[in-house]
Nucleic acid binder design. Sequence first.
DNA 1: TGAAATTTGTTCGTATGTATT
DNA 2: AAATACATACGAACAAATTTC
Lengths: 235, 235
Amino acid sequence: MPRPALWTAISDSLTGDIATGRYGPGDKLPTEADLSARFGVNRHTVRRALQHMAENGLVNARRGAGVFVAACPTEYPIGQRVRFHRNLRAAGRVPGRELLMSDTRSADREEAQALRIAPGDPVLAYETIATADGEPIALGEGVFPAARLPGMPEALQAHSSVTAALAACGVADYTRASTRVTAHLATPTQARRLRLPDGAPLLRTTGVNVDPSGQPIEYGITWFAGDRVTLTLEQ
Amino acid sequence: MPRPALWTAISDSLTGDIATGRYGPGDKLPTEADLSARFGVNRHTVRRALQHMAENGLVNARRGAGVFVAACPTEYPIGQRVRFHRNLRAAGRVPGRELLMSDTRSADREEAQALRIAPGDPVLAYETIATADGEPIALGEGVFPAARLPGMPEALQAHSSVTAALAACGVADYTRASTRVTAHLATPTQARRLRLPDGAPLLRTTGVNVDPSGQPIEYGITWFAGDRVTLTLEQ
DNA sequence: TGAAATTTGTTCGTATGTATT
DNA sequence: AAATACATACGAACAAATTTC
């Protein structure tokens, strides 16, 4: 374990001051010279810490004026997912998937509407982390209509991709009926799982996959690391 | 117009070397010391340029080893017949557009490549703010190939939409050849124009429009307020 | 296998430019 | 107009990780 750099401690300290409200949104931080004196370091070291915080959207600097706390990013949920495995392999990167959780429970109203089942009907819910070359790329949450896919809980565990698991359950092919894309800021949990800084930009896609007969088989939300993934739409 | 910093020229130069294939994915760049000598600057200045490129995912550095060109950013194809629209028109809101700037200048490398013209060829560049019920929704930056569209500067001023202006220049129809979507954090300028807090999440779409013969007629970047807009992809 | 050379990362110091107050 | 405060740039030294011999 390498000794942490000085500037990380300064960044952590100032970030903590913002988190605890010592500096609120819009407040001006002490000058770089003041911070240098407070922490007993060179001004360069303070600037490295402030730069890191600025990259994360926590503060922004205005020449001649000062460094100001940014308006706090609010909490957001996440979502989206498409066929992830195949596309990454085509790009020459090694795909991976980690199943965080899977559980059979009752569908809520939103899930039921998307899957065209009744609220309370059983759904198989799961959460995954998708990786490329070991680097986390996306978080996925999805629900399958349990009644339509017997054996899916086991298939999901056994196979390394949703497509393969669905194939094992007799769904040879599926298409995406609709996708919605929005931008959100990473929550601390999302940021940790994706190994991103707090407040990093995420692409959230929400969509429904349907089998060839048009029957919904998955309702899913995927959160992509906004700076590691580009959604490409080709017409 | 502030004098550009030295490190930006170095970043541009190295980025160009990567774009033209002088350094390919996975290649090792010259050492910081070598680059300092080549550009005649201090090693710090080179490091600042490399840092900027690393933030954009163009390179990554490994202590003791070197700085390497990153594997191409992950692209994520979604589907073939995908159209996208802003969901606000369906909500019955009144759209508006404000032309912030338009100017004829020389194409940079990226623009030239997208429009299939030569770097330095004249392009008509413009910036707009799109609104819905007066609320800023998106910032647009675009460039047209000036040689292919005589009269476009005047048409852009006279008409309230790009589509109408293109029609006035004889381009009756156009289609979007490709779109890339990524998530980013708002810069202070973008935040102010969109009336968002600093660091708000933005959807950035980059795309090329082509006329019916397939010739590029516009290359544009649009920044959407992530929490006010949902891109809907319908297949 | 191990020591040396190489290369990036951090930190200090100093000076000057530029935008804001 | 002057003071303040961030931005840029040069120089030097050492630390830490990797590569080379």
